[in-house]
Design a protein around this nucleic acid. Structure first.
Lengths: 205, 205
DNA sequence: CAGTATAGTGAACAAACGGTCACATGTCAA
DNA sequence: TTGACATGTGACCGTTTGTTCACTATACTG
């Protein structure tokens, strides 16, 4: 095979680790799934734990590039319906993107065993979405779309329930459509609650 | 040792499994922590997996006895401040009770490997608190304490953020007091939002 | 007292694990 | 063509894993 074996090992390690955990995955099975024999792996990684660390490096880098920087913030919605659309688009991506889903599952499994996994888990499960929506909500308050309130508190109140439903999709994929419907219902309920009465309310909500 | 060895094995298995997972825990170390030798375990359980299944039986039974039935529902608060007190008492218990904490950590780790663990995880992480607060909110609406709204939606919007902060305590115990403060702050913010304007508002909130 | 569960011991087992090494193959530059 | 490097192979290694078993000590029961 070619030189991309290292990346193929990492991709499959993410797949296996996210299903059976680090301890539950063995190198024979992992390399066999790539059509290799276990010793071939040691040409690319010095040990099993080195795979784990490289995978964590990649996950951390991916998170930073995809969600970490302020430049990747979506524009402030111009309407309440725009907030719903933005939310559903974001939810749709994070629920269906295989790499992100596997990363969350892996972090659920390994967050108590590895310090870096723990920190990344807090970002994925708690602070990430909140930090993303806080400036959006502040902007929507400035535009008179939402009532004046603590943007960070509102972002937390908005994203935590959505995050819980995203977790439900990870855990029980059979309930995915139900979860997506509940995300939209919650989003509209939230907006109904915090829509600015004096502003330009979208009556269709 | 006495006849309670079986229970001591289960208690220690919960402890070990919640730290290192099922695959990361070995029987030698587990029994050694009890002052026994590994073979002694097989007098009480037929295999390692039998420990796991017995532990899951116990966790499921404990959940049903402690949170499952409607008779264990706390009384509907008589004031908005009563809701805060009830919430903080519930949070204090679920954050500090060792058995419950370990159960949540174990379910985080094993939810993707075992079907029964997955179902119990959904109760612990999503439906449990919501189902508990839904009738409470309905009662508080009847009493004129909260605005008329969908009680289940409000309960979900209330409990999901609290649940996220409880998870933070499991993951990063060092941030426990911060999390508890945020739970109370969120609780008061939520109540400020949904307090019934026409009812007997507790102005101190 | 004899007899029989019950609980714990320590040696032994096969299987599976992560890891090493000498060797074969292919690619590419000198 | 030759030499060096990267990649993959298969046999092998020591360790750890879950599990079994013959045996001992204690405690209860007839």
């Amino acid at each position: 095979m070619a030189k991309d074996t290292k990346e193929r090992i990492l991709a499959l390690a993410l797949d296996k680790f996210s299903q059976k955990g680090y301890d539950g995955t063995n190198i024979r099975e992992l390399t066999a799934s790539l059509g290799l024999v276990k010793s071939a792996m040691y040409r690319h990684f010095g040990s099993k734990e080195e795979i784990w660390n490289a995978l964590l490096d990649e996950m951390i880098a991916y998170y930073g590039a995809r969600f970490g920087s302020a430049e990747h913030l979506p524009p402030v919605p111009d309407s309440l319906e725009g907030l719903v659309a933005l939310t559903m688009g974001m939810a749709d991506f994070t629920i269906h993107d295989e790499k992100v889903v596997k990363t969350r599952k892996l972090l659920s499994i390994e967050q108590f065993r590895d310090e870096r996994a723990r920190d990344l888990a807090t970002k994925h499960f708690l602070t990430g979405l909140t930090d993303m929506f806080t400036p959006l909500f502040a902007g929507m308050m400035d535009k008179g779309l939402l009532v004046r309130d603590d943007p960070a508190m509102l972002a937390f109140a908005y994203t935590a329930p959505i995050s819980a439903l995203i977790h439900l999709c990870d855990r029980e994929p059979a309930r995915m459509t139900e979860a997506i419907q509940r995300i939209e219902a919650f989003s509209r309920h939230f907006i109904r609650t915090y829509a600015c009465q004096g502003g330009n309310i979208d009556e269709t909500i």
